[in-house]
Amino acid sequence: MNGIKGLIVKDLLNLSHYKFSLLIIIVVFIGLGVSSKSSLTFMPIMLMTAIGMIGLSTFSYDEMSKADKYLLTFPTDKKEMVKAKYILIIGMIIIGAIVSIIATYGINYIVYSEIPDIEPILTMVLGGVFGISLVEAIQIPSVYKWGAEKGRIQMFVLIILIGALIGGLVFLITSAGLSIQFDTNQILGFIKNFGTYILIAVILLMYFLSYKLSCKIYMKKEI
């Protein structure tokens, strides 16, 4: 267990170089939320995406210094190394989600003098967590397989593909004369239909499968 702690401390110390960039991102997104009320609908997702995705950059630090080989000379093993990455990355997403909820709630309360309904905020953030988790659950095994650089390219390809897919669907729907409107109530309804607990279970399942796949890839990998 101490090995996992050491690995997480190493990643957190590496990430501490991001603290000013992270602070700027938080300030910019909060500023966006303050500037107009409509921005408040997408601000939490952007904020938590920015915080949540930072965990992935620790792979680049390790790759630059070829740290994997060195770390494996410590009293740890490949399984612990994979586990530590997942704990860190999931932890960063949870922190991102909490910061987003507090920021959204706080802006509504302080700037717009409203006591907001917490449920739509939670729903929005949960949707965001699902989106980021989907990307990361695919991204992490691919980084273990191909490395941080190629893995990052694949992440962009994946995002572009998802964007193109959604864009294509929207185009088809609007071409067919159907109107689409997204508001929190619709998303809320959607999630209510499937159930928040199912969504959480799906997120956990995604990470579990992703972790198992990463372990399998990394155990076989020649370093």
Partner: peptide, 30 residues
Amino acid sequence: KQDIGVVLDDSFLSEYLNPMDINKIMKNFY
């Protein structure tokens, strides 16, 4: 590995860490 010390020519912890950081990391491992 608790009793082995290793130096590898081409591999180490991140270059963005200082000796103070490295101490914080290593005391968790050994």
